[in-house]
Simulated assay, not measured.
Amino acid sequence: MEAFLVSLLAVTVGEIGDKTQLLALLLAARYKKPAPIILGILVATLANHALAGLLGQWIAQHISADVLRWALGISFLAIAAWTLKPDEMDDDGLNESHYGVFMLTCVTFFIAEIGDKTQLATVALAAKYTDLSLVIAGTTLGMLVADVPAVFLGKIAAPNFPFKLVRWIAAGVFAILGVLVLLGIGDRFL
């Protein structure tokens, strides 16, 4: 259960203000079809985070525990710094194809998530925890917790949402996780 909860928290806070959350806002404001957008986010995230989780497990099996601890700690610190940089998205090229809003959301979310901080967090968490299904469930739910409200709020709340404050809080959470891992403190909690 620990893997699930840490994964959920890490991705939820890491996703606030992220380009995929902005993409959810953009798609919702443009198409006003929440059901296919949410389903597209779910499918794309499951696929993307499953691949990231498999990579994380491969890394854990082929890299020594000390190297893995340092890599994990440094990666959390890097994600903390990256979180402070606001993402920007524009809606150029987001045209509904003949496959519809669901497929557009699946493809754009999957691509946008490649190399993203939440995908890298999934790799790191899968390297740390042995139960891949709990990591993927936690990171996927974290994406939905952060992105589904964005789908329903659309452009209405976007200008007033305190993205900067939440980015700083998220960066703090990742920095704390990184320091704890590097110091070897809380190994049973991380």
Rank of each mutant, 00 (worst) to 15 (best):
I156H: 14
H98I: 10
A146Y: 07
T83A: 10
D90P: 01
A158K: 15
M89H: 00
P149D: 07
L120Q: 03
H98G: 12
F152N: 07
S133M: 13
I156C: 04
V107D: 04
P162L: 07
A158L: 11
L132T: 11
F109W: 11
Y129M: 02
F163R: 00
V135C: 00
W168K: 11
L144F: 03
E113F: 01
Q119K: 01
T140K: 08
V101G: 03
Q119M: 11
H98W: 12
K164W: 05
V151I: 14
S133Y: 12
M103S: 13
V145L: 14
H98Q: 12
V123F: 02
A137H: 04
T122L: 01
L144N: 10
W82T: 07
V151D: 10
K85C: 02
P149I: 06
E96F: 09
A171R: 01
D90A: 10
A170Y: 00
C106R: 02
L144W: 10
G138H: 08
A158M: 15
S133E: 11
K164A: 14
G142M: 05
L153T: 14
H98C: 00
A121K: 02
F102P: 03
D116N: 09
T83M: 12
V148A: 13
V101N: 05
P86C: 04
A112Q: 01
A137G: 13
M89T: 14
F110D: 06
D147A: 08
L120M: 14
I169V: 15
A157C: 03
A126H: 04
N95V: 13
K164S: 04
A80Q: 00
I169F: 09
D90R: 13
G154V: 13
V107S: 13
K85A: 11
T140C: 13
G138W: 02
P86M: 07
Y99E: 10
G93A: 05
M103F: 14
L132G: 06
C106P: 00
F161M: 14
K117G: 03
P162S: 07
T118W: 02
I156A: 13
L132A: 05
D116W: 10
V148W: 08
D92P: 00
K155Q: 11
A121M: 07
A112Y: 02
S133Q: 11
K85D: 00
K155F: 07
A121V: 05
A158F: 00
S97F: 00
A127L: 02
L125C: 09
Y129E: 05
N95I: 12
W82K: 12
T83E: 05
A146D: 08
F163H: 12
I114R: 09
S133D: 08
A124G: 11
